[in-house]
Each structure stands twice: as structure tokens, then as C-alpha cells.
């Protein structure tokens, strides 16, 4: 496979999002220099890649060179892509500034995903990096979600992206507002893979735990090392109405 922008030729690091099954969502990737700089001489190359369990991408699309003042809104539906895995894969957006190498601090340029559910709902989310962020983490084994929901008519969907070369473990622990905890079994997240599961299916008795708080609690996601965790909320039988990233514990 041609690789027009290998990591070896640029210091700019890629950022990531979920590559969802195409029958569930219609995705637009917004690639815009305006989200990276105010310098009119700036020039960028944007490359999209899809991963499904291997460091080698299953597809790659070079979106070309985009000067400051222009921007791209790329529909994945228009790219003639192979199908994503059942629970989705990893979408890599490599934003490379051509006229300048990254300085100290942030070494990635995040962009945006506007996803609309085929049956309604959807989400808006920035692409985020696995490395190269400026903020320092206090912990790389934990991220949290204040405000997950598990009740008779609502559930939460957890998504973990592992854009690294080795598998690691994950474990979900839910706390009720008054501090009572329930934990799920550890599970494995394969390399360059997405793990997806509902909260009620992965944390025993979670609905009962949160019964007294209208189904609302908080989630701790423990992982063997840093991953990219997300959560979504959905009314049972209805499409997802948000996807957002979990909160890292910053130093």
C-alpha cells in the first residue's frame, strides 16, 4: 500500500477517532487549517487511515495538500472503504503541517468528526492523540466518566480504542453517587482495535446499583496502560445521542 505520509518523515503525530460500522453512522471528517493556525502561509496534508486489528492500516486515503484558507469536509461514505469490523475499528487522522515541524508542547493537530446516526442521533467529537499532547497526565491507568446512565430505559455504551501495537486489559468500575461500587470482569483490548460494550452487560447489577439515583452514577475505566476511552448514552431501542471522551487525570 502506498503511504504518502509515513511517520518517519514528519514530527507531527496522528490523532484518532472511532471508525464505526458504516450501517450505524454517516461520518464527515472536517480537516481545516483554521483549527491549527492563524498563519496565512501555512500548508497542510491530511491523511486518513483505517485500522482493524493490525498496525498495518486496511485502508488509507491521502486527502491532499490544503493551504490556509481552504478546508475539507470528507464523507467516509464517498471514499469506497472496506467494511469496518463489527464493533468498529480505529480511524486515524494524520494532520501534517508541511511548512513547519512541531515545536515544544503539542505535537499533534486534532480535527473534527460530525457523525449522524443512520436512524437518527449521532455525535460530534474531536480527534484525539495517544501521544504528543501538551497536558501531562497524573495517571495513565485511569480515566473517568462522571455521569454514566444505566436504568430500565437508558444505557451507556463504552468504547475503548487501542491505537498501539500490543494488547492490554480494561476493567470497568461503576460508583453510585453515595460511593458504592460494582466492578466488571477484566477484558482484553487488542492492538489497533476498538472494544465496545454496554455498561449493563459488562458491570453486574449496575442498574440495581444506580436505581436510587435515577440511573446516574460515575465510571472509572482502568486499563493496563493509556488507551482512548469514550462513552455514549442511548435510550433503549433508540440511536445514540452523544459520544464523548472520558476524562483523563491530569497532573
Amino acid at each position: 500500500m502506498a503511504n504518502p505520509a509515513p511517520l518517519s518523515v514528519t514530527g507531527w503525530l496522528p490523532s484518532y477517532a472511532w471508525w464505526p460500522p458504516s450501517e450505524e453512522y454517516s461520518l464527515t471528517v472536517i480537516s481545516t487549517p483554521y483549527h491549527a493556525t492563524v498563519e496565512p502561509e501555512a500548508e497542510f496534508r491530511f491523511v486518513l487511515r483505517g485500522y482493524a486489528g493490525s498496525v498495518r492500516p486496511v485502508w488509507e486515503r491521502d486527502l491532499g495538500v490544503v493551504p490556509f484558507g481552504r478546508e475539507l469536509a470528507t464523507r467516509l461514505d464517498d471514499l469506497d472503504l472496506p467494511p469496518a469490523p463489527e464493533h468498529g475499528g480505529i480511524l486515524e487522522l494524520h494532520s501534517i503541517r508541511l511548512d513547519k515541524e512541531p515545536a515544544r508542547g503539542s505535537k499533534f493537530i486534532g480535527m473534527w468528526i460530525d457523525a449522524q446516526g443512520r436512524d437518527g442521533g449521532g455525535y460530534l467529537i474531536p480527534t484525539i492523540p495517544i501521544q504528543g499532547a501538551r497536558k501531562r497526565l497524573a495517571r495513565d491507568d485511569l480515566q473517568v466518566v462522571p455521569g454514566i446512565v444505566a436504568s430500565a430505559d437508558q444505557d451507556s455504551e463504552i468504547l475503548l480504542l487501542n491505537p498501539t501495537d500490543s494488547a492490554t486489559t480494561g476493567r470497568l468500575a461503576v460508583s453510585s453517587p453515595d460511593g458504592v461500587r460494582a466492578e466488571g470482569r477484566p477484558f482484553e483490548v487488542g492492538p489497533w482495535s476498538a472494544w465496545r460494550g454496554s455498561l449493563s452487560a459488562n458491570v453486574p447489577r449496575v442498574r440495581r446499583l444506580l436505581e436510587a439515583s435515577d440511573g446516574v452514577g460515575s465510571l472509572a475505566i482502568y486499563t493496563g496502560r493509556k488507551l482512548l476511552p469514550f462513552f455514549a448514552l442511548r435510550r433503549r431501542g433508540e440511536p445514540v445521542s452523544s459520544y464523548d471522551h472520558a476524562a483523563p487525570i491530569f497532573a
Binding site: 466518566v145 435510550r235 452523544s242
Partner: peptide, 16 residues
Amino acid sequence: SFRPYFHLISPGGITS
């Protein structure tokens, strides 16, 4: 980093 999340709750679901 103790960051609050919030929910907008509507008949169509919750977004956060």
C-alpha cells in the same frame, strides 16, 4: 482535572 460533565436531557435521549 476534577472536571464536571453535564447532561442535556430530552424526550429523545441524553447528550453529554
